[in-house]
């Protein structure tokens, strides 16, 4: 769980998306490790990490809703 710079060359035209909400990442991103599976996720900020856990909780309490 930490901030990282999107370290890109000035002529790099690729874009990066938040793994949680889909919004575009600008200049830096927040990363966290998924508790299940251990995958590292890149997201907009801490609020998107909270959103990730919230959606998972909703999915577990009401699957397929």
């Amino acid at each position: 769980m930490a901030w990282h710079e999107l370290d890109k060359s000035w002529h790099d035209t690729t874009v990066d998306y938040c793994d949680v909400c889909g919004n575009l990442l600008i200049a830096r991103y927040w990363s966290f490790v998924e508790p299940v599976g251990g995958e590292t996720r890149r997201c907009c900020d801490e609020s998107c990490e909270r959103l990730f856990h919230r959606l998972r909780r909703i999915e577990e309490s009401a699957p397929g809703s």
Binding site: T14, V15, Y17, V20, C21, G22, N23, L51
Partner: peptide, 15 residues
């Protein structure tokens, strides 16, 4: 408010 629109869907286009 949060909007979840995963990249690669019609709701959030990928370059």
């Amino acid at each position: 408010i949060k909007v979840v629109a995963p990249a690669g869907t019609i709701t959030c286009v990928r370059l």
